[in-house]
Design a protein around this nucleic acid. Structure first.
Lengths: 343, 343
DNA sequence: GTTAGCACTCGTTAACGGTGAGTGCTAACT
DNA sequence: AGTTAGCACTCACCGTTAACGAGTGCTAAC
């Protein structure tokens, strides 16, 4: 990309910021006055023509003003944008709000998603920390009635999962004890990835006559391990899709995409950098070709655990959104790391 | 409402069913052929004019066919509609699918909502059983680490709620024992409505030096009791709003309405009958004036506990949807009643 | 390199006329 | 009285046309 003159950069920035604010093509006259008539509108028109040539601007039609192209947004984000900082009170408010959920990662991320959707008027997506190398820290059996019990599994990643199990046999102290012994011997300290169906099968085989009593519980444990490994996606502010008129055309496809889940998960999995801004067709899924996604990973301890971010139109207030998302990811990471270390 | 002749009823039914299927105004000729030319199109036109007069049909404009009015749909639902029955395999499939969640009411209803959304291509709403007269059946403390524990509360309504609590003090056997004693004395068997903030305050006052250790747990219990009393709404298939072109105009308002939650809750609370079909402006909220809501309550034991149903355009396949929703509510009720009785 | 001036482009809006599906009415028929 | 054929009428829909105006691109002068 050829270097851009100071003035062209300035013009590009004005067009983009104005377009972000108003959603309408920006003409040469407006720019001229905004620049204090330092140069004439004709000069600006010449520069704008060059910027179209470079692919940074686009023209909806000959007689309209200019709008940023995808590449224009990209240039803006990479070079021109001045990063905004969140207000201190707002920072504090978010910290406190999220702090109360810090011992339950799933809830924390759900809440964070809600906050982000609220803050940005976009669809917010957050993924719970998933760590396939997590180790089973603890399994508890909570009797609820004669025939039902809740199994609670805590993983080293801080993730807590539970399920209610029904047994045909009465759940008494004996069964609880057998259960604890099995956990102690076979599960605690083991990686959740080890707890596969074959593993459970061999285990079952060695149990002798307790098989029938225990198998529902063991299956539940396998399910919970699976759940620990799996990323949970939290979708918030879906109503915001309809806020953005430029998305309304393919709102349906977009909505459907979001609800399918798996592709979204793949997308987040494939992101390698901490912060990820994909504008328009930079997105790997064609359903997002008119959208921008901004995601930031958060780290628990020293490893990246999950992501939080937004999906919106390409016409987004990048200067505000990017720092906000970064900040949120930071807070989440800190809170989760703290709670994990504490123990 | 004056009686309608046999033939007018027939014509009305044909128009409504055809309009439901195609979404386009129905003309006299089509009806004529559909009736096997038993009468001429002119006769039908005369009848249609009468039906417009009675308010059961509407005309988008003079030279268009007829479409059902709100009142027309109402008449159809009350008098003309032939109730369809779900196929046996489908019934079985639903039963089995839902059966696996029957010990966790919240999950069961969420799942049921998903199924309903899938089945109907509408937005499905389900509310978890709420019972403010429920009694605390059991409270368990599950230690997770030195400073965190999970509190599990089981109510007589079958609702299970849990929360993770962090304590500054180490959570050891002593604390667990004190906790159990408190639960035994003050909580178990008590109605969740009794566990108010004042109640906790007086309780705290009588605790002496254990106040500081116990208060986070007691607060958590109060929160859980609150959660037991509160209806949880599950919204599924929101993407289906965009499926229905007649809703797309106020899709945004509708979406927003759904996300606000409280009005929806109020609406469900205000429904007195088992089955509730509100067509267009029969809905109490003006955001729904172009929509139809079909909800059925389900009963656990002998009391109505919650609702499940859909929100869609007024142009809906009532003949299929109403039985489907009724059936689903029945299955939910049965499953939850069974699990509750079992113990 | 910058600027004033001006012709040009093209989307937007309103007006116009033809087309056709479907009606409403009337007069005749059973 | 109810039913029917016939026919004029209505009105959304569609494509065409024209006026309008914001904004451009180009040229020639500075």
């Amino acid at each position: 990309m050829a270097e851009l003159s100071e003035r062209k950069q300035h013009i590009l920035a004005i067009i983009i910021e104005r377009y972000i604010a108003t959603g309408e093509p920006v003409g040469s006259k407006v720019i001229c006055t905004q620049m204090g008539n330092a140069v004439s509108s004709a000069t600006i028109r010449n520069d704008m023509a060059d910027l179209v040539e470079s692919g940074l601007l686009a023209q909806p039609h000959t007689s309209a003003g200019r709008i940023p192209s995808q590449e224009g947004y990209r240039y803006y984000v990479d070079n021109l944008m001045s990063n905004y900082e969140l207000g201190l009170e707002e920072q504090e408010r978010i910290k406190i709000w999220l702090g109360s959920f810090s011992s339950e990662p799933d809830k924390l991320l759900e809440k964070a998603g809600s906050i982000l959707a609220e803050l940005t008027n976009c669809v917010a997506v957050s993924s719970s920390p998933a760590d396939s190398e997590a180790v089973i820290k603890r399994i508890e059996l909570v009797p609820l009635s004669n025939h039902t019990a809740m199994i609670v599994l805590l993983a080293s990643s801080g993730i807590l999962k539970s399920a209610v199990v029904r047994s045909d046999n009465e759940i008494n102290m004996d069964i609880a004890e057998v259960f604890y012994n099995i956990c102690q011997t076979y599960f605690n300290g083991r990686s959740v990835s080890d707890i596969s169906i074959p593993f459970i099968q061999t285990l079952v085989a060695s149990l002798g006559d307790k098989v029938f009593i225990m198998s529902p519980f063991l299956c539940a444990i396998a399910d919970l391990c699976e759940a620990v490994k799996t990323t949970d996606l939290h979708l918030k502010g879906q109503n915001n899709i309809l806020n953005h008129s430029e998305l309304s055309e393919d709102a349906f496809r977009l909505m459907d995409f979001l609800h399918r889940g798996t592709p979204l998960e793949n997308m987040l999995d494939s992101q390698k950098t901490q912060l990820n801004v994909a504008i328009g067709s930079e997105n790997i899924y064609r359903e997002l070709k008119n959208s921008t996604t901004i995601f930031s990973k958060y780290s628990v301890g020293d490893r990246d655990s999950g992501s939080i971010g937004i999906i919106g139109p390409t016409r987004l207030d990048y200067a505000h959104l990017i720092p906000t998302i970064k900040y949120l990811a930071g807070v989440i990471g800190n809170l989760l790391t703290e709670t994990l270390d504490e123990e």
